[in-house]
Amino acid sequence: MKLEAWCEMTRLRVEEYQCPCCGQTFKTDVPVMTKDSFGLQSPIHECGNGYWTAVMRPRTADAKMFWDTII
């Protein structure tokens, strides 16, 4: 699925993120899906797995109820 279609389907938008380690700016333009969530994440780059970010949205009513208890 193309990024534009993914964003429309999930009602998410690409965000910019500045890595606190190297200072480079990355976009959250990698579509991801988990059991409970839709999202966009920034690419994992040379700084490693600890330096990426994502914007997420719950997929199900149960996931939304859970998110509402922690956010």
Rank of each mutant, 00 (worst) to 15 (best):
1 M>P: 07
1 M>K: 13
1 M>H: 14
1 M>W: 14
2 K>I: 07
3 L>A: 09
3 L>F: 09
4 E>L: 03
4 E>A: 04
4 E>Y: 00
5 A>D: 10
5 A>M: 07
5 A>T: 13
5 A>L: 12
5 A>Q: 15
6 W>K: 03
7 C>Q: 02
9 M>Q: 11
9 M>K: 09
9 M>T: 07
10 T>F: 04
10 T>C: 10
10 T>V: 06
10 T>K: 05
10 T>M: 05
11 R>G: 13
11 R>H: 11
11 R>F: 06
12 L>H: 01
12 L>G: 02
12 L>F: 00
13 R>I: 08
13 R>N: 12
13 R>L: 06
14 V>Y: 00
15 E>I: 08
15 E>W: 05
15 E>A: 12
16 E>W: 01
16 E>H: 11
17 Y>M: 09
18 Q>W: 00
19 C>Q: 07
19 C>N: 11
20 P>W: 08
21 C>D: 15
21 C>L: 15
22 C>H: 03
23 G>E: 13
24 Q>D: 11
25 T>H: 10
25 T>Y: 10
26 F>W: 15
26 F>I: 05
26 F>D: 11
27 K>W: 02
27 K>P: 00
27 K>T: 02
29 D>S: 03
29 D>E: 09
29 D>K: 01
29 D>T: 00
29 D>R: 00
30 V>Y: 14
31 P>L: 06
31 P>V: 09
33 M>R: 15
36 D>S: 12
36 D>T: 14
36 D>A: 13
37 S>M: 14
38 F>E: 02
39 G>V: 04
40 L>M: 05
44 I>C: 15
44 I>G: 10
44 I>A: 14
47 C>M: 04
47 C>L: 05
48 G>W: 10
48 G>F: 05
48 G>K: 12
49 N>P: 07
49 N>I: 08
49 N>F: 10
50 G>V: 00
51 Y>F: 13
52 W>S: 14
52 W>C: 14
53 T>C: 07
54 A>E: 04
55 V>P: 00
56 M>W: 02
56 M>Y: 02
56 M>P: 02
56 M>E: 02
57 R>M: 09
57 R>W: 07
57 R>Y: 01
58 P>V: 02
58 P>L: 05
59 R>F: 06
60 T>G: 06
62 D>M: 15
62 D>G: 14
62 D>Y: 08
63 A>Q: 01
63 A>W: 00
64 K>G: 08
64 K>Y: 08
65 M>R: 09
65 M>E: 12
66 F>M: 15
66 F>S: 10
66 F>E: 10
66 F>A: 15
67 W>F: 11
68 D>W: 03
68 D>A: 03
69 T>Q: 12
70 I>G: 01
70 I>T: 12
70 I>E: 05
70 I>M: 02
71 I>F: 13
